[in-house]
């Protein structure tokens, strides 16, 4: 949620400047009102394609007919995926229409969950985790690497070629493989600046590197080698009396 890191030591207040307010304004990282733009306004058409519509009807059928609105989140997600990774006002309006609920109820959901991007994003959505465990394992270095490697973007920005959007996110639940980042739907874990660049380069080329730990670990086993269960596991029947062998 902190758009930028606080510097290690605050600069001394500038004495020459006397403003009415001595405090700095605090901004949230997203706007919680809609502004009409050429690319995002209610007149931009959006409809589910045939495949998604079928999927949507299947999702709606999970819920009792008078509680159709329970399908808001899955349908918004479906809409976001179809709409190049972001939820435009037209997506929200369409979901509201489909579920027969006031559009505002959908806007409430879409603004509440940070995973709904209400502004367009690049082809690849890079989310770098900077919550405590990742931070302790050097996630800010990873973030700096990502930003620098993508041509000096800041968190929250999209590269000029539209290939990448970088944001800082809170815990993704992969702390045992910290530091980590999410690219599109996949986790890339155990990152170092070098492996981070490799992953990003692969995405830039249009490839998809293997998700998971980038350090050679399989999952979250001890990176220094196993300390327990080191011997070969015994096979079936071993240690049994002969008649059971």
């Amino acid at each position: 949620m902190f758009a930028t890191r606080l510097p290690k030591h605050l600069p001394r207040p500038h004495l020459a400047c006397r403003k009415i307010s001595s405090t700095t304004s605090k901004r949230s990282d997203a706007l919680f009102v809609h502004r009409d733009t050429p690319y995002n306004n209610p007149k931009v058409p959006f409809e589910f394609n045939a495949e998604n519509l079928k999927r949507a009807q299947e999702i709606i059928s999970h819920y009792p007919p008078q509680y159709k609105k329970a399908a808001t989140i899955p349908l918004l997600d479906l809409g976001q995926r179809q709409n190049k990774g972001w939820t435009s006002i037209s997506v929200m309006n369409y979901v509201a229409k489909l579920l027969e609920m006031p559009p505002m109820r959908v806007y409430e959901v879409a603004t509440f969950y940070t995973m709904f991007n209400r502004e367009p994003i690049g082809e690849n959505f890079v989310q770098v985790c900077t919550t405590t465990p990742c931070m302790l394992r050097g996630s800010y270095d990873i973030l700096d690497t990502v930003c620098a490697h993508l041509g000096g973007v800041k968190p929250g920005e999209t590269t000029k070629n539209g290939k990448f959007t970088v944001i800082e996110v809170e815990c993704q639940g992969a702390c045992s493989n910290a530091p980590m980042m999410v690219v599109n739907d996949d986790f890339y874990e155990d990152l170092t600046p070098a492996t981070t660049k490799k992953v990003l380069d692969a995405f830039a080329k249009g490839e998809k590197p293997k998700p998971g730990p980038q350090s050679g670990r399989h999952t979250s086993e001890n990176s220094a080698g196993l300390t327990a269960l080191t011997s070969k596991p015994y096979g079936p029947g071993e240690f049994c009396t002969p008649e059971f062998r």
Binding site: F32, H34, I89, E108
Partner: peptide
């Protein structure tokens, strides 16, 4: 039914979103 709350936590606000 156009009035509601958008955003969350400290940034929650009352409005119509549009």
């Amino acid at each position: 039914e156009e009035l509601g709350t958008t955003g969350r936590g400290n940034d929650m606000q009352i409005g119509m979103y549009v």
